[in-house]
Computed example of a mutant assay.
Amino acid sequence: MRPPCTVLGALVLLSSSVAFATDEPQTLTPMSEDIQAPEFDLQGPAGEPQRLLDHRGKPIILNFWATWCPPCRAEMPSMQRAHEQVADEGIAVIAVNVGEDAETVSRFLAETPVDFPIPLDLDSAVVQSYPVKGLPTTFVIDPSGRLVYSAAGEREWDDPALLDQVRALKVGP
């Protein structure tokens, strides 16, 4: 796991890129407060609508990332593998790109293809509405829309222990 890239003031900016390996276990941190996930209505790189509300009723892995952030780039393939494992189980994976334009994100996706939603938070308004202190930061949202777990820094999202915590949030079959 790598530490998150830092955030300066109200805008998410890269101040340094410290990347190092560690032997810390893959964990999710329970949220200490009862927080409803702020809704968003954004567009993907091809202009397609991306709304959080469209995924209500299922667990959601909601990641905030940027192409300039090495740990963000490094965890994207594991997010794709996680998506491939849980999509048929009714669990959504969404990765909100923070502050970059469609062309920049599309270039990255040409090198690292994913087939889960990538909303573009062009003005960083959405990331500022979440308790994000650095990138990457990921939240797990329960089916009722509450933030239940967070993860600051890079994770291997296809790790069975992480996915089992998300699966435990499912309602019904």
Rank of each mutant, 00 (worst) to 15 (best):
Y130F: 10
P25W: 02
I35P: 05
V126G: 07
K58S: 12
D23T: 15
T67V: 08
Q85Y: 11
P131D: 03
D88Q: 14
R2L: 12
C5T: 13
Q50D: 07
R107P: 13
A21E: 14
A19S: 14
F40C: 02
H83D: 13
W68I: 12
S106R: 11
E103K: 14
V166D: 00
L42M: 01
T104W: 08
P45T: 12
I60K: 00
L135W: 01
G99L: 02
Q43P: 10
M79H: 02
N63V: 00
K170A: 06
E75T: 08
K58M: 13
L13W: 08
G90L: 05
L14C: 15
S129Y: 07
L109T: 04
L135P: 11
P113M: 02
V86R: 01
D101S: 11
P71N: 09
V140D: 01
P25A: 07
M31R: 01
R167W: 01
I60M: 06
P136R: 04
D101N: 13
D88T: 10
F108H: 05
L14D: 14
M79A: 03
T29F: 08
E24G: 15
L8I: 15
D88C: 06
V7F: 01
P38R: 06
E89Y: 07
T137Q: 01
P136W: 00
E75W: 02
D121T: 00
Q43I: 13
T138C: 02
Q85L: 13
I60N: 00
P59M: 05
L11S: 14
A66F: 04
L135T: 03
L163M: 10
V140T: 07
V98G: 05
Q50Y: 11
A87C: 15
R56T: 09
A152T: 08
D23V: 12
F116L: 08
E111P: 11
A10I: 10
P71K: 04
L163R: 05
D54E: 09
P25Q: 00
P59F: 07
S129V: 10
L13M: 05
P4E: 03
Q165I: 00
V166Y: 01
P49L: 01
V114S: 06
G153Y: 06
E100D: 10
C72G: 05
P143H: 02
R2F: 09
A87K: 15
P30A: 04
W65E: 02
S106M: 08
V18C: 15
P117R: 04
S129T: 08
V12R: 10
P71E: 06
M79F: 02
T112G: 08
Q85K: 14
M76A: 11
T22C: 13
P160I: 07
D142G: 06
L53M: 15
D164V: 04
E100M: 07
P173A: 12
A95D: 02
A151H: 07
A152F: 08
A152W: 03
V166Q: 00
S129K: 09
T137M: 02
V12N: 13
V126E: 10
Q165W: 03
V12G: 15
I94V: 12
E84C: 09
I60E: 01
G44Q: 04
A161S: 15
D54K: 03
L13A: 09
A10H: 14
P71R: 03
T22H: 12
I141S: 06
A66R: 04
E154C: 05
L169Q: 01
L8Q: 14
R73T: 12
L42D: 04
S16D: 12
I91M: 09
T137E: 05
A102S: 12
R107N: 14
A161L: 14
